[in-house]
Design a protein around this nucleic acid. Structure first.
Lengths: 182, 182
DNA sequence: TATTGTTATACTCTATAACTATA
DNA sequence: TATAGTTATAGAGTATAACAATA
């Protein structure tokens, strides 16, 4: 089903085209690997979270507000890497589904604090279980210590990346608690 | 600029809402980390490849066809994780820019073989240099051995993911040469 | 004057469907 | 009949701009 080698060798020998070993293989490209893994995980997790408004993002809203406490929409949007307008729609759906609530922020009447409802909290446990198996599936080729290592390294890169660019939010640079920043 | 702790503690104490330590922090979520890193790299590499038709994807076409030899559009699309229709537009632009050429496949008159032009080959060297510094920038918090380790692990996960789902291409399952598949 | 959140709108990206030409 | 590639079109997702309420 492939169709390259002998043909090419001939043309190369004739000097019609430059030799093949020019650059590194795509597999070595960070962008390629990130794209492939990201798309694969996105598809798998979307399937695993079938029925949850917003899919993976809905989960992230629940997970964040559940583990870190109520958050303002803008902070949530920055942390999750989405536009604030997108966050509005996302929260509309989650609220309609009874999973989160918007409460007035006593410290700033413009802002809303997002918190999971009891129902949201309960749902979260199940969602986490579903996601866990998806993650294991994606990381399937790695053995246990390798998975742990990969998660750790990725997490560090991510925290740095989020600190550098949480959707043009300046003050969150302070949140990169890890030393050795830059 | 934050606004949570004491307020929440009070409400939790009153039993108005469940305790905060429900789930794992988002930072531990594979999906969150992948998304953050992917977006960050996508933005950085797009900036680094300014002017190249298709941006990172244009690069991947050049890199793949340069290192692996001429490829048919459909194979290229599967390998790069894009729809075949998208590949058509992408190649139109790259061809207009004089970086790749579409040649008839002597083995199948329906197919076209994509190969970089001499100009494309030359451009690739510069593009690779630009990308290299972008990659180092994104992986900045990791030291050298950690970067190597991360790249290696990510690459393995990616090759597995691409084998499982190269845009519904069945026969490429055979291409997962790494043992320990599944 | 700047900021939070909402809404409406426009834009970009991607996928679907229909078509040509081959196999 | 099925496949490679193209084209046109529809759809999802995202961002931009204008607005109201508040700081």
């Amino acid at each position: 089903m492939s169709s390259t080698s002998p043909e090419v060798a001939t043309r190369v020998a004739r000097g019609v085209e430059p030799p093949v070993a020019s650059g590194a293989p795509v597999e070595a490209d960070l962008g390629w690997a990130l794209g492939v893994v990201f798309r694969r995980y996105a598809k798998a997790s979307a399937a695993a979270l079938e029925g949850l408004p917003g899919g993976p993002r809905g989960y992230q809203v629940l997970a964040t507000t559940s583990s870190e406490g109520p958050k303002r929409q803008l902070d949530l949007a920055a942390q999750l890497g989405v536009d604030r307008t997108v966050m509005t729609y996302l929260l509309d759906d989650l609220e309609k589904a009874g999973l989160v609530q918007r409460r007035p922020d006593p410290a700033d009447r413009r802002a809303r604090l997002i918190a999971p409802t009891d129902e949201g909290h309960e749902a979260l446990c199940d969602l986490e279980r579903r996601l866990r198996s998806t993650e294991e599936e994606v990381l399937g080729i790695l053995d246990e210590p390798e998975r742990a290592s990969f998660r750790m390294l990725l997490q560090r890169v991510a925290m740095k990346a989020n600190a550098v660019d949480p959707l043009h939010n300046a003050c969150s640079l302070a949140e990169a608690d890890d030393p050795a920043s830059t």
